[in-house]
Design a protein around this nucleic acid. Structure first.
Lengths: 72, 72
DNA sequence: TTAATTAGTGCATCAAAATACACTTTTTAT
DNA sequence: ATAAAAAGTGTATTTTGATGCACTAATTAA
């Protein structure tokens, strides 16, 4: 997932859960300003910030292998 | 994945690929010092740093829904 | 064993992330 | 239409991430 995709995922998930940025900020312990900036596509959050947000949204950060094309 | 798990994943992947921290640092554009700190469990990388590392290791950062237990 | 390579750390600097406050804009609901 | 709620931004401060250099520790190979 590229950066924009990660942002969109967080934002959409929050909207699906129908919680405000304010609530997510409080619940996650991430500053409201930080969340606002993140969702509006600015900044470059730390892994910890991303994990805190993902956590309260019932998600998790993971690493997965990309598709490896094997030429025949 | 928890923080430690993410670190371990990166480190193991690098070892499987048999590349040194120095190589990964150069290839990814991440400072060697930064990578060293990350792999030794210190610090809190930015999403961009994590993505650069994942990228050269043929991986990607993603967000996924945690298992949601639905009570019946 | 020991020389060479790779990994980890102390210290210092610079840039940027996190944060708060106050204000504007946009969206939503009445 | 308009009031209320939610989202976005400017400015400023504090904290901390990213980085380099130089050095130590650990690992690996000859």
């Amino acid at each position: 997932m590229h950066y924009e995709e990660l942002i969109k995922t967080i934002k959409q998930r929050r909207e699906v859960m129908q919680v405000t940025q304010e609530s997510v900020a409080e619940l996650s312990g991430v500053g409201l300003r930080t969340l606002k900036q993140f969702e509006s596509g600015k900044g470059n959050p730390t892994l910890m910030t991303l994990q805190k947000l993902a956590d309260v949204l019932g998600m998790e950060v993971c690493l997965k292998l990309k598709n490896v094309t094997v030429s025949k």
